[in-house]
């Protein structure tokens, strides 16, 4: 296998606020190969956005990466200076943000907002940048690109704005696209179009995508591999088919059980009883223990991430952070839950 395009190791990020320190990401590992679509799922507040944005150190005020490495194409991004990072941002790695309504500058035409990123990273003339911007508009299927390019963001619908965002992210042909819930704010038909567009672009341009979503339906349709996040940690990780066929983590099972038909894409995640932990003071053991139907005494100590080597029930490239997968776990327990 070739070296991964991106590899995160033990990423930890916290937000220091006046109401305490939020441990948003607590030791996430992630590997991504060229041309791969990796899905990131989890409830609100599980740390999906913070994980993604930490890769490029795009944190809001108060956010600090306290440990970890993010090796992209041989260099650790977390060790780069702001100036060095800005050569990666927008050029090698494009980002699409969660909320298309607020992610565009309201006082600048969308054309300029696209041209800007081209002029920043490519030695091209303004005219060429404009031509490329129109081309990108066509690529993301915005009708009458030539005239719409001079409009302001408020003159576009949410779906169209998200296309503009994608056009900005794609402007410099990035090798990696980070798409943070690119469709959550949109209605179902638009959502399908955008996802289809992303997949098509991956196939055509060969870029890797990290796709963040609440929605397992979206994952089933789009991703190759999926990571389930909870309480700032990876709970389970698997190829998409394996996750749906043989989920191992009680949290994943809870998520799947709540969707009658995983192919239905309008099924948002909030079905597991209970609420997510307060990340200012996360549980010391398994973060899911307070809500877990299988919780055991041992769950008050943090479980490891178990792989296929630890238990025969895990498929290749499947990992789970649950005591049930511990080789020492009694066999009858596994019967009862599996």
């Amino acid at each position: 296998m070739t070296a991964p395009l991106l590899s995160l190791r033990d990423l930890r990020t916290e937000y220091r606020t006046d109401r305490g320190t939020v441990q948003a990401v607590r030791g996430v590992d992630l590997t991504l190969h060229r041309g791969e679509i990796l899905g990131l799922v989890g409830e609100s507040g599980s740390g999906k956005s913070v994980t993604c944005m930490s890769i490029l150190k795009l944190l809001k005020r108060g956010g600090h990466i306290t440990s970890g490495t993010a090796v992209y194409d041989g260099t650790d991004l977390l060790k780069l200076s702001e100036a060095q990072l800005s050569r990666v941002r927008g050029d090698k790695i494009g980002v699409v943000f969660q909320d298309p309504m607020s992610a565009l500058n309201p006082t600048m035409t969308v054309g300029r907002q696209i041209e800007e990123v081209l002029l920043q990273h490519r030695k091209i003339s303004k005219k060429a940048a404009r031509a490329r911007a129109i081309e990108l508009f066509k690529l993301v299927r915005i009708p009458s690109a030539e005239t719409r390019i001079d409009n302001y963001p408020h003159e576009f619908s949410g779906g169209m704005r998200q296309r503009v965002m994608i056009a900005i992210a794609l402007a410099c042909d990035p090798d990696l696209l980070i798409a943070d819930e690119p469709t959550t704010a949109l209605d179902v038909t638009i959502q399908r179009q955008i996802l289809a567009l992303l997949k098509e672009l991956r196939d055509r341009l060969g870029m890797a995508i990290i796709l963040v979503t609440h929605d397992l339906g979206v994952i089933a349709e789009t991703a190759d591999r999926v990571m389930v996040l909870y309480g700032g940690q990876v709970m389970e990780q698997a190829r998409v088919t394996d996750l749906f066929e043989a989920p191992q983590h009680p949290y994943t099972r809870g998520l799947l059980a709540a969707i009658p038909d995983p192919r239905r894409s309008d099924s948002a995640l909030s079905p597991v009883p209970g609420s997510p932990p307060d990340m200012r003071a996360p549980p010391s053991g398994c973060p899911f223990a307070p809500r877990c139907p299988n919780a055991m005494a041992i769950c008050l100590t943090p479980p490891d991430l178990y792989g296929a080597g630890d238990t025969p029930r895990l498929r290749p490239a499947q990992y789970t952070r649950c005591w049930l997968a511990d080789p020492a776990a009694p066999a009858d327990l596994m019967e009862a839950t599996g």
Partner: peptide
Amino acid sequence: ELDYIMTARAKGLPARTVMLRHGLRN
């Protein structure tokens, strides 16, 4: 602190440009 400032940073614009071009006018 607004989202589009983050977008501007994600584009790889230098901090000064982000502040002057996107922050100041608004």
